[in-house]
Design a protein around this nucleic acid. Sequence first.
DNA 1: GGGCCATGTCATCAGTTGGTGACTTCTAGG
DNA 2: CCTAGAAGTCACCAACTGATGACATGGCCC
Lengths: 188, 188
Amino acid sequence: MTPARTRNAAATRTAILEAARKRFAHEGYDQTGVREIASDAGVDAALISRYFGGKEELFSEVLSCAPNIAEFLDGDRDSFGERVAQMLAVEPMREEKFELFLIMLRSASSPKAAEAIRRHSHDAFYQPLETWLGGDDAAVRARLLSCVMMGATMNRVIYEDYLLDGQQRQELCEALARTLDNYVSGPV
Amino acid sequence: MTPARTRNAAATRTAILEAARKRFAHEGYDQTGVREIASDAGVDAALISRYFGGKEELFSEVLSCAPNIAEFLDGDRDSFGERVAQMLAVEPMREEKFELFLIMLRSASSPKAAEAIRRHSHDAFYQPLETWLGGDDAAVRARLLSCVMMGATMNRVIYEDYLLDGQQRQELCEALARTLDNYVSGPV
DNA sequence: GGGCCATGTCATCAGTTGGTGACTTCTAGG
DNA sequence: CCTAGAAGTCACCAACTGATGACATGGCCC
């Protein structure tokens, strides 16, 4: 019988991972302290070093678990642009879908996190996208899609949607969808 | 006769401002220490607090001086997309032109810097761009342009161009130019 | 020359960070 | 019951950060 809660290494590890994922997405690598993560997870901060080796390794582990682009690639190809644009411009910034982007954008400036971001984002975002696109210029089109998606997310992070009302966000969404689909259907 | 170098408040102030601008663009707000700025400028770190009040105020002052979008808005309207795309995808990441973007992207994750970024980027980037675009949906088109420009810069910051060769960057540039001009000439 | 303020230097503080090792406590196996 | 080791707790360290106030020094005006 699994012991309810305490004294369970696996559960503790998971709790730390979950708390870290949220914190990194909300605050970024630098702004997140191991004490905060531990507090959220309801464990002692020392356990982070014990279980993961340190903050950097924890961050790398988080990137491995974060949801990636797969969800959008699985769906209908023709509606890709619309689905992504909806997420980028209209839907509230739900962490579940945005998480990888948010972690990346908010942590990219930290040298400690940059290397892990490069590695993981390539494996979990760029490469799958490129394969999904196919064709000779898949790399360029993947980059174009990445530009629009990152830029749109970055704008929301910075301005927090202050500058656009609902109607404008709808227009933005439609334009983004057209641009994205244009890159998807290629050729560039 | 201006005293060569020492004991010159104006020159010291300028030196600090210059050094800070470069540091903030290269490393971002959090990663930059006042001691590093002072060292680059060849002055004592305490002078930063004396002259600017503190690191935050210095950052805000730097944003006021950083080169903005004006250069691109002054040129020929028809070549806007090409000129901007050249900067974004082909030209080496010269700090002079990129500086405002780099400072923004690398510092946006810092709460201390976020407020100043919002304010200054609106005044020095968004507002001029919107006015320059004109028309009913200028706000949306400005946002679209901002997405592409920020996203492209972000990609270069993260991946450091590892993923694309010269030929691909040229293709990327042309596609970006088309997209940008499409947003400029509107309607969305 | 002498006083005086602007300018620059220095030591140091208080806070925060990530990390470590010794300690306690719980549980499993005998 | 008792030991051994895993799991968790705690106190603490060393490094770094931004900031401050006391102090030294230079240059200008009287």
